[in-house]
């Protein structure tokens, strides 16, 4: 089981093997209880979906996992490290996309993707004195960025500015930046937002290709597009008003009456799903 309340774990591997494990996390913003005793684990090689209505706390939980939001209580382990700071994530093999685009407006597309390799850049001193290691890093980072851009179908766009691209292509740039470091855990925050049906299909292919390309690669996907989540994910967790409402396989979630009432609505097999 990949998504689970920790005491009920039934998989053979020890908890430390999970790339991501949040246990009994509570987050308060002033007087608002944003996350209420929620637990979530993403096992190695699993694609896990996190769904829920607007304001359920999905992005907050993402931010807890990334070290951006500090939980009031609970434990957070990412790639076996207790509550790593955000700048350490890529070094640990974790990449994240943001709900918006999160691209750097003054950098070219290639430079935006290269920024995903910043954790491996030589130190400031090497850069300041123009050490060969710094030039070598840039050369290799540029090559890897081009490969990542080609992977998302943007070969040849490296010299362009992100703002000159259509929105769906900018989404791909953000995805290429997440891919470029070859992460073992990919955190995708609403990657289908603003995309059309054909583009969502292409996105699903890219994520499938990533997760299936190498054993042990994991994905945590926050998304409102239920069809995409159902088709991509092995396990799904449903968050509602900060509480973990249900976890299970896509079929189990479809049949969960509490989830239907709170989020999915009726006729989950068809286009009426939320």
């Amino acid at each position: 089981m990949s998504v689970d309340a920790p005491p009920a774990r039934d998989e053979a591997s020890p908890p430390a093997a999970d790339p991501l494990r949040l246990e009994h996390v509570t987050v308060r913003f002033g007087g608002i209880l944003a996350i209420d005793d929620a637990s979530l684990a993403v096992g190695a090689g699993h694609v896990v979906g996190l769904i829920g209505p607007n304001g359920a706390g999905k992005t907050t939980l993402f931010n807890v996992a990334c070290g951006i939001v500090r939980p009031r209580t609970g434990t957070v382990r990412v790639m076996g490290v207790e509550r790593p700071r955000p700048h350490r994530l890529t070094g640990l093999g974790v990449a994240r996309t943001l709900q918006g685009l999160g691209l750097f407006p003054g950098l070219t597309v290639r430079q935006n993707v290269m920024a995903g390799l910043s954790h491996g850049a030589p130190g400031a001193a090497a850069g300041l004195v123009g050490a060969p290691a710094s030039a070598r890093f840039l050369r290799e980072a540029a090559e890897r960025a081009e490969a990542a851009l080609a992977r998302v179908g943007l070969a040849g766009a490296g010299e362009r500015m992100p703002e000159a691209l259509p929105y769906p292509e900018r989404k791909r740039v953000a995805l290429a930046r997440a891919f470029v470091s070859e992460p073992r855990l990919l955190l995708l925050d609403e990657p289908a937002g603003g995309l059309g049906a054909a583009e969502i299909d292409e996105l699903a292919e890219l994520v499938r290709d990533f997760a299936g390309g190498e054993r042990g690669r994991s994905v945590l996907l926050v998304e409102h597009h239920v069809d995409l989540v159902m088709s991509l994910c092995d396990r799904i967790a449903v968050l509602d008003s900060g509480r973990m409402l249900a976890t299970g396989t896509p079929d189990e979630i479809r049949d969960d009456q509490a989830v239907v009432d709170a989020y999915l609505g009726v006729d989950v097999d068809g286009e009426d799903a939320a």
Binding site: P86, H87, L89, L98, F104, L128, L138
Partner: peptide, 19 residues
């Protein structure tokens, strides 16, 4: 240089840069 790229990225979007 890599540090120059990091400085520019940090200037444009510190939180994204951290991630």
């Amino acid at each position: 240089t890599g540090v120059g790229l990091a400085m520019r990225a940090a200037a444009f979007a510190p939180e994204v840069s951290r991630l």
